[in-house]
Write a protein that binds this DNA or RNA. Sequence first.
DNA 1: TACCATCATACGTATATACGAATAATAGGA
DNA 2: TCCTATTATTCGTATATACGTATGATGGTA
Lengths: 141, 141
Amino acid sequence: MKDLEKTLRALADATRLRIIGILLFQEACVCDMQRVLGLAQPLLSRHLAYLRSAGLIRDRRVGTRIYCSLALEGEVGRALREFLQTIMPHFGPFHEDALRMKAHVERSGWMRRGVSDSAQSENRRSGKEGDNEDQSSSVQL
Amino acid sequence: MKDLEKTLRALADATRLRIIGILLFQEACVCDMQRVLGLAQPLLSRHLAYLRSAGLIRDRRVGTRIYCSLALEGEVGRALREFLQTIMPHFGPFHEDALRMKAHVERSGWMRRGVSDSAQSENRRSGKEGDNEDQSSSVQL
DNA sequence: TACCATCATACGTATATACGAATAATAGGA
DNA sequence: TCCTATTATTCGTATATACGTATGATGGTA
């Protein structure tokens, strides 16, 4: 968690709030977020860079894909997570974004199981679960 | 509490954070804040207007003086208060501002008791206590 | 009414920020 | 190596924002 001012500045933009809203549920890859949020790729990339620079997210690369997750640790991070979990349902686009992401993930899961990338799917299911502590969330739709 | 985006934008400025840091302790008048924070009067006035517009503070006039206090109600407001109480001690100027305000209030109280404005002092002590619920705070120095 | 204290608002300026379009960098497969 | 998918970065532009300076508005007292 970086500088407090930088953190709060990161929250002061609707696009970045939408990104955070998605990540409150679970890790997501940039390409999924791009489609679900309907953002231009460069724009999304820039906002992610900002959030990364502020220490709010971290990422990992799997092949060509970057998976992002929230990085809320320490006292301030925990307080921020709680705060976000309380306020985000009050943020206009939050629910629709969440539904779209859920639908997208289910559709994508189906495609993966049926068509392609089974090796990557195995990779995700068997070996990466332990790394995704940031996925835990108590926000309920 | 107004629009969530506006609220978060209000937090994205160091000067406004300093103002909020002072008000986390208790209601304060504009003139005291101006002196303690060392801000130009028009600047302080503008930032207070922003915070007021965002629904984060409210004020009351007593003669020529405006007293400001935090207005954190409802689910989001309560969450925000908790969040602020946790994070503000991590904000650089917070502690010094608080000490300066404390010293200022003690010095001012002395001057009031000794020299002038005893009617106003009585007014503040006897009749306004019930209105200052927002003064309660558990932030400890 | 004049004067002073307190606070709000207008004007101008420098800087920050968000975004679109274009391009560059990285990874993977044939 | 070439091509494609994914992502990062650059460039230019419009808008927002923070601040200093000057002025206006409100309240109180002599």
